[in-house]
Each structure stands twice: as C-alpha cells, then as structure tokens.
Write a protein that binds this DNA or RNA. Structure first.
Lengths: 142, 142
DNA sequence: ATAGTTGCAAAAGTTTTGCATTGTA
DNA sequence: TACAATGCAAAACTTTTGCAACTAT
C-alpha cells in the first residue's frame, strides 16, 4: 500500500464544488484546492487569504469570507468557535471535538467516537440538539 | 426557610470588589450591583451597558468592557465563548457547562458535577488542561 | 497628594454589504 | 446571453487604546 498523498487536482475539487451545487469559479476552485489538501486543516479567513496570496491566487478577503461561509452552509466545512477574536473553519466535518492550545491559538481534532459524555440533562421541550462541542483548553506546563 | 431574595446592597458589592483588590468606584459598584443580583446572569458588554442605562447609571461602554475584563481577571466572572459575534460573561464561576439556544442567543448553565466526560486522549507533554468547555447547541423543534 | 480610574473619541480588528464589473454555463 | 459571483471599498460591529480630567484612599 502506497503512502503517498496527493494534492487535490482542479478536477477533484470541481466535482466536490459541483456536488454541493455551487459554481466552480476560479476562486472557489483555488480556495478548495488549498482547503482540501490531505489532512485536517483549521483555517481562519485571514490565514486562508494569506495562503492564497502566497500561492499566487488572486482573490479578495471578502470573497474568502463569502466562500468559507458558502462552503460551511453546504456542509463542506465546519465552523469552530473557540475564541471571540476570530472564527475558525475546520475541514474535518465528521463527529469530533477539539483541543485548543491557548498559547498558540492552534486546534487539534479529537475523534468524536473516543469521547463519551454522560449526564446531560433533559433537553427542554421543543428544542433539539444541533451539536455538542467539547473544547479542551490547554495551556503550557505539566 | 424564607425564599426571599435580595438585591446586593452597595455594601455587599463593595466588600466583593475590595476583596479582589479593585477600587470600589461608583461605576464598578453600580455594575457589580447589576451583575451580582441573585441568580446566574449571562451578559454581553452591550447588554450590561443597556441595563446600566436603563437603571440610570452613568457609565461609558468602554468602561463596561474594561470592568467586565477586570472582574474576569479577578475571578468574579467567567468568559463564555459560544458565538464569534460577541463575548458572554457568566456570573456563575463554579464548574459548569452550557446549553446554548442558537435561535435566541441565550445560555443556560449545566452543573459541572452532573456531566461526566470519558475517553479524553492523553494531554500532550508540557501542556495542562486549563478548562474543559462543553457547549450543547440547541435549535428549535423536537 | 497621589496613584489608579473614568470618559470620550478615535483606532483597531474582524466581518458584512452594495453595486458595478466579470465570468460561468 | 443571462444570471450569478466577484472585487473593491466602504460600512457595520465589537473591542481596545490613549490621554486629559477626575476620584478614592
């Protein structure tokens, strides 16, 4: 079994974008190629914008924001709220939780299947759980 | 056993503010009286500012922000991050978690002793847990 | 008296919006 | 060609900051 990983080709992401009924525009394709490289990525609008700049992609910050929200609404990304200073978007959309390194502002995924939460009180009538977020905040020193 | 509750007098909050080595200024006393009324309160800078206005307290929004952060640093309040749009401050500083009504932007406390979280992976070397936040997001409909 | 605090206004930072222009299908 | 998306700049918001005036001790 080969261990090589490939960056998604324009064709891969094109299918992915079409699958969620968004137009595969130049900017969306370029951003999707950056986002959907192998591995789980946690980006902010600013960090993705910087990545795009470095990669020579011409796109405005406003379009990065719009695209991140469109991808999130389409289920391609998940928003993670850990910090009131900025919004993180996670390419891992499966059931999972997070470690958050407060000193580095970095996120690490925790497989949702590993974590077991017990003792949650009854949900009030008329409401339903849309998601459970567990954030384990880490600081330096043992 | 009487069930009556009292609003904190200026004298109560004065002691409380002095205990954390902050000067009991007119603004801090007034904001503390609003914050530390019986029950757990979840406020934003804006909502507390509005409350103060309604109560006829003369205080600027900047001072409300500063005071909320000073009280938080002093351990009188806890910051709750649920929403990138604004920061919530919680007068309940004991171990607990939250329900978050997405449609109403409202928080409800869940006693920390009730919730049991199992299966958390080992914390990386050199790090320690500063806090675990569980947010159960609720939307409408059963 | 002195050292910390307030108030204001302005700055800073993130995110959203409006509209002419562009580009996809 | 038609219609949706982009880009830009500007607006909208939340939050922070700097400094002169004020106030608790």
């Amino acid at each position: 079994m080969e261990a090589r990983t490939y960056s998604p080709s324009a064709i891969d992401v094109l299918a992915r974008i079409r699958a969620v009924k968004l137009r595969p525009t130049r900017q969306r394709i370029a951003l999707a190629q950056l986002l959907f490289e192998p591995g789980d990525h946690h980006v902010t609008a600013e960090s993705l914008f910087d990545q795009a700049q470095s990669a020579g992609v011409k796109v405005s910050l406003a379009t990065v924001y719009n695209t991140l929200h469109q991808f999130t609404a389409a289920g391609l990304l998940r928003e993670v709220v850990v910090n009131s200073a900025c919004t993180y978007f996670d390419t891992n959309i499966s059931d999972h939780h997070h470690f958050f390194y407060e000193s580095r502002n970095a996120l690490i995924d925790i497989d949702g299947a590993k974590i077991d939460i017990r003792g949650v009180p009854a949900i009030p009538e008329g409401a339903r759980i849309s998601r459970v977020d567990v954030i384990i905040r880490l600081s330096r020193q043992g």
